[in-house]
Simulated assay, not measured.
Amino acid sequence: MYGQSTQFLYLHKYLVGGATTFTAHLIHRIMKNKPIILRSGNANRSEKKLRDFGYGLVYQNVASDVVHKIKYPFITLYKENYFHLISKLNEKRINFDDITLVIHDHRDISKSSLPYVKKWKLITIRKTVQHYLKNKFDLDSLFLPHPFYTYPVITKKVPTDVVSISRISFEKNIDIILRANKLLNDNQSIKLYGCISRIYVHHFLGGQNGDFTKYYYGQFEKSFSTLSKILAEAKFVVDLSVLKHDGGGTQYTFLEAIHNGCALILHRNWLKNNDVKEEYCDFREGYNCFAVEDEKELSDLVKKNPDTSRIVKNAKKLIKRHANVDWSFLLKND
């Protein structure tokens, strides 16, 4: 089972967020027969049970000693709490570039993991992250745009909602959205969907008894059709992400919005900051997205309710790159 062809590994305890969506889009794009995703922990025994990964995929929890038996690991996400597996992957291995690791942001690599991963085949999905890894660790990586599976979309004639489908968590600036909602009428307010970080909600959004619950519509099912139903009602998608040592490129919330015909409202610091070189930036304010910095700008934009046809048309050009990028050359099969 684990020997002679590429095996996808997901090394994180949470099955939500951009890396989960990345794994789903990647597999749907390049694999005709959908594989079992392996997820390892500290257990001494592997489970026989297959569990729901979302997006029509399944995963299996396997014992950590299974990992070193995998000839061609393709790690779609690695986080430091799985550090104990890194050395196992390198045991008795001759060709270290048989291991592929996708790096999503600067936190995926540390001084601890560096000695183990530097000989692997490293893939970055934003130019800014690729630049950071080279400057910080002298790590070479191959940049490939996010793979995107162009699933069927649901359309409505006159979508009017303004929504956020980001995680309700740090670095997403959900607090700006809440403050903007206080400046808007109820029929204009921005609807929040997504997985909650309870710590973030408690400390930054006033807890479950604050205004947050008024605008929160829940965590949506991990399926392309469910997501498209939400976005079919939306004219705008708000994503105010600002990530350290990052920015300029795409995220899956951006691509999902564009694919479903929604106009993006981004944080201006995603487009321009000290980490983002101009040539790394896929977005231009007023051309393929709107941009704001605070609740006043955001609420004013929502009230103004501008025509989005040109913004959406220009943004659609990005999808072609992500729908056509070839990741299949990374697959191996003896």
Score class of each variant (00 low, 15 high):
residue 231 L to G: 01
residue 193 Y to A: 06
residue 186 D to K: 10
residue 196 I to N: 04
residue 217 Y to E: 15
residue 226 T to W: 05
residue 209 N to A: 11
residue 196 I to M: 13
residue 220 F to W: 10
residue 217 Y to G: 04
residue 195 C to S: 15
residue 178 L to T: 07
residue 222 K to R: 14
residue 198 R to D: 14
residue 234 A to H: 07
residue 208 Q to E: 15
residue 203 H to L: 13
residue 183 L to A: 10
residue 205 L to E: 06
residue 192 L to Q: 11
residue 225 S to P: 02
residue 175 D to T: 01
residue 181 N to T: 12
residue 186 D to M: 05
residue 235 K to L: 00
residue 223 S to Q: 06
residue 207 G to N: 03
residue 212 F to Y: 09
residue 231 L to Q: 03
residue 208 Q to A: 13
residue 232 A to N: 03
residue 183 L to S: 08
residue 189 S to Q: 07
residue 190 I to A: 06
residue 176 I to V: 15
residue 201 V to M: 15
residue 210 G to W: 14
residue 181 N to Q: 09
residue 194 G to P: 01
residue 227 L to F: 05
residue 218 G to E: 02
residue 180 A to G: 07
residue 214 K to P: 02
residue 236 F to K: 01
residue 202 H to Y: 12
residue 202 H to W: 09
residue 185 N to I: 07
residue 219 Q to E: 15
residue 221 E to G: 08
residue 207 G to T: 02
residue 187 N to F: 11
residue 178 L to K: 12
residue 194 G to L: 00
residue 195 C to G: 10
residue 223 S to K: 07
residue 235 K to F: 04
residue 195 C to F: 15
residue 230 I to F: 07
residue 191 K to C: 01
residue 206 G to R: 07
residue 213 T to N: 07
residue 193 Y to R: 08
residue 207 G to H: 01
residue 177 I to Q: 06
residue 210 G to Q: 07
residue 203 H to S: 12
residue 226 T to N: 15
residue 183 L to E: 13
residue 199 I to F: 14
residue 235 K to W: 03
residue 219 Q to S: 12
residue 224 F to V: 10
residue 185 N to T: 11
residue 191 K to T: 05
residue 196 I to V: 15
residue 236 F to G: 09
residue 224 F to K: 10
residue 225 S to R: 11
residue 235 K to C: 03
residue 218 G to A: 06
residue 177 I to Y: 08
residue 218 G to V: 05
residue 188 Q to I: 00
residue 186 D to F: 03
residue 204 F to L: 13
residue 230 I to Q: 10
residue 204 F to P: 01
residue 194 G to E: 04
residue 190 I to S: 07
residue 208 Q to C: 08
residue 230 I to A: 09
residue 216 Y to L: 04
residue 201 V to E: 11
residue 210 G to Y: 12
residue 174 I to Q: 00
residue 174 I to T: 05
residue 218 G to Q: 00
residue 229 K to F: 03
residue 202 H to Q: 13
residue 176 I to Q: 05
residue 206 G to A: 09
residue 215 Y to Q: 09
residue 231 L to Y: 05
residue 195 C to K: 15
residue 203 H to G: 03
residue 209 N to E: 14
residue 180 A to L: 08
residue 181 N to D: 06
